[in-house]
């Protein structure tokens, strides 16, 4: 743990000004990710800029949808009446994450940037390209056949330099509802689609999002879902609560008058390097009747390009079954989703 300075920003502009071009500065929101990484020596900022007092803690609704300040807590967002009613997938995803205490502290902005839970990333004694580019990937291992502890790693979107899975639950739902991320930079403000916000690791796993180092997330926007949409999030994990996803699926679906699927957005968690939008699954579902066969075909399409590693091959079958289960539950609610 390094000594650091702490400053409190008073407005988004003030936060940006204090950040300036200082590569050693970090914004701190709930701190549930950042402080852990500092204790582990993974993050060693020399200045912490507190962004808890920027006035970004409101939720407003208009005919375009919901506008959520970056500092809204995960709990407040999950418990918001409109979210529960109109975007249940969001509420379910957030409540499936972490613990009550963490969700009370965690913010929307921080959740988008929680990055990574790979054990090698979090241990400065271990090789990790994402933390220290060029040191190797501990999860892939040093020797062929002797891979690292990669049971939690991704099977979609990985690269030879990094195979970590994106850990967030909320972000999977954000991709499924086609949310936008509001970004403020010194030059101008912009909106990014959640699904474009995250970057595949490629050769530069250290760059995880499209957010510039001197930029601030000010909020997210949830667009209205299509009329008649059903949505749901399901997470499979090693214990009933307080564990990261092995696999998860978030789906938004509508059926036309003939009972065929006429809108589907599918996002997968725990299996991708980023919150994983599956165009393949969506294409397979569109215009199909909502049958088990169609769901199975969509799930297979979603994982057609999957690459398993030594300890995580099960995620391909489990990921498919998770998606099929969500689809089934959406068209035949209560068919067994009882603990």
């Amino acid at each position: 743990m390094n000594p650091f300075r702490y400053v409190k920003a008073t407005s988004p502009a003030d936060a940006l000004a204090r950040m300036g071009r200082n590569p050693g500065a970090r914004f701190v929101a709930g701190g549930t990710t950042l402080l852990d990484l500092m204790k582990l020596g993974v993050e060693t900022p020399d200045v912490l800029i507190d962004i808890n007092h920027l006035g970004l803690d409101g939720i407003t609704e208009d005919r375009h949808g919901l506008h959520i300040g970056a500092h809204v807590s995960n709990t407040d967002l999950a418990e918001h009446d409109s979210v529960k009613k109109k975007w249940p997938v969001m509420s379910q995803a957030i409540l499936a994450g972490a613990s009550t205490q963490l969700r009370n502290m965690a913010t929307v902005g921080g959740n988008l940037l929680q990055g990574n839970r790979c054990g090698y990333f979090r241990d400065v004694a271990m090789p990790c390209n994402r933390r220290d580019p060029g040191t190797g990937c501990g999860a892939l291992g040093e020797q062929p056949g002797v891979e690292g502890i990669n049971r939690y790693c991704a099977v979609l979107g990985t690269s030879p330099s990094c195979i970590a899975a994106h850990p967030s639950d909320m972000c999977v739902a954000l991709v499924a509802v086609d949310a936008k991320v509001k970004i403020s930079s010194p030059a101008f403000d912009r909106l990014e689609r959640a699904e474009d916000f995250f970057r595949l690791p490629g050769d530069t796993p250290q760059i995880q999002t499209r957010l510039g180092p001197d930029e601030l997330i000010t909020g997210i926007e949830l667009p209205e879902l299509p009329a008649g949409a059903r949505s749901m999030y399901l997470k499979v994990r090693d214990r009933t609560s307080y564990a990261y996803a092995l696999t998860s699926a978030a789906v938004v679906l509508t059926l036309d008058a003939k009972g065929r699927i006429d809108h589907a957005r599918v996002a997968l968690g725990g299996v991708g390097s980023v919150p994983w939008r599956s165009h393949e699954a969506e294409n397979a579902l569109l215009s199909s009747p909502p049958t088990e066969e169609a769901f199975r075909a969509a799930a297979e399409a979603a994982f057609a390009g999957a690459v398993p590693y030594q300890y995580n091959g099960f995620k391909i079958a489990l990921g498919q079954d998770t998606l099929v289960r969500v689809l089934n539950e959406l068209v035949r609610p209560g068919a067994g989703e009882r603990p």
Partner: peptide, 15 residues
């Protein structure tokens, strides 16, 4: 659920 994992190459506790 309980199990401690060691990295098979480095022998470091990973959990």
């Amino acid at each position: 659920m309980e199990a401690t994992a060691f990295d098979p190459y480095f022998g470091r506790v990973m959990t």
